[in-house]
């Protein structure tokens, strides 16, 4: 026992260093958003925070960042809704509707392969297809693409949660006279709500973060936040402080979600990989 209390201090110190390594770059970047370009170059430790970078990013005539933010929210919410609804139905179907084993295995193997393919490899084909049906530079195209990209993970996650609902409850409902939609709505859905929340949050975050496909399927009017941030780095004269400010703004959803729904994120991330 004494050994354990002895070793507690080094453990705490190591963990604190780890936490610092995670936090310092983030905090330093956010702080850079509040500096002037000169202050950043000088590297003063103490500086007077200014809001002009954020103001510039958000409200200047030449910046589309607010539009990008709105686009990201629209695409994120719509693709998340589409993705989790489709995934929940599929997870239920594959788990409980007695498909032949080969159907289930073939489908799941395909989702795995699909998940491993770099999205960039598909992006051009999607672009071609979107143009063929007139969906290029629309939200619909990007929403469909994001929902599809996240579908494998969402199906695996929801399959785990659906599997955890006891089969007997479903049978009890059948005996009570429930048809498939009743079972889904009144029995399965209420019991997988936490899992559904976890999956939705992760799906939203992944859509928010997605860059490669958004880059290829969007233009000025439909560009999402990551696309906008990437533009900064492409500029000949990089506006470092504004890039920092927009990076800080882009992290807001992540931080919000972490504050209010850490439990669900942990659930989603660990279930998805472990089961």
């Amino acid at each position: 026992m004494s050994r354990r209390t002895h070793s507690a201090l080094p453990v705490h110190i190591t963990l604190a260093i780890g936490a610092a390594l995670v936090l310092v770059p983030i905090i330093w970047t956010v702080a850079a958003g509040f500096r002037t370009q000169i202050s950043l170059l000088m590297g003063d430790v103490l500086f007077t925070p200014i809001g002009s970078n954020f103001a510039e990013v958000l409200w200047s005539k030449t910046s589309d960042f607010l539009l990008n933010y709105r686009n990201s929210i629209i695409v994120g919410i719509a693709s998340t809704l589409l993705c989790v609804v489709v995934a929940t139905l599929a997870a239920f179907s594959l788990n409980r509707m007695r498909w032949p084993a080969w159907t289930v295995h073939l489908f799941l193997a395909w989702t795995m392969i699909f998940h491993m393919i770099p999205p960039v490899a598909l992006a051009s084909a999607w672009f071609t297809m979107a143009r063929a049906v007139g969906l290029e530079n629309t939200f619909t195209g990007l929403i469909l693409a994001h929902a599809t990209l996240n579908l494998p993970m969402a199906i695996w996650l929801m399959a785990v949660f659906v599997r955890d609902v006891p089969k007997e409850l479903e049978e009890a409902a059948i005996m009570d006279g429930a048809d498939t939609p009743h079972i889904l709505w009144h029995v399965i859905l209420p019991l997988i709500t936490p899992g559904l929340a976890a999956t939705s949050i992760l799906t939203f975050i992944f859509s928010w973060n997605e860059f490669a496909v958004a880059l290829t399927l969007t233009m000025k009017q439909t560009a999402t936040v990551p696309v906008a941030i990437a533009k900064f780095a492409q500029d000949f004269e990089i506006q470092y402080t504004q890039m920092a400010a927009s990076a800080a703004l882009a992290m807001v959803p992540a931080i919000l979600v972490l504050l209010v729904a850490q439990r669900y994120i942990v659930k989603g991330l660990t279930q998805g990989a472990v089961k």
């Binding site: 936090l23 970047t29 890039m243 990076a247 992540a254 994120i265």
Partner: peptide, 27 residues
């Protein structure tokens, strides 16, 4: 755990931005 989760949730492009700043030659 909360602190360590944070990088997972941040967009890859923002991570790129963060480290483009962090690794900048000048500042």
């Amino acid at each position: 755990r909360a602190i360590f989760i944070l990088p997972i949730l941040i967009p890859g492009i923002v991570i790129g931005a963060i480290w483009k700043l962090m690794l900048n030659f000048d500042f």
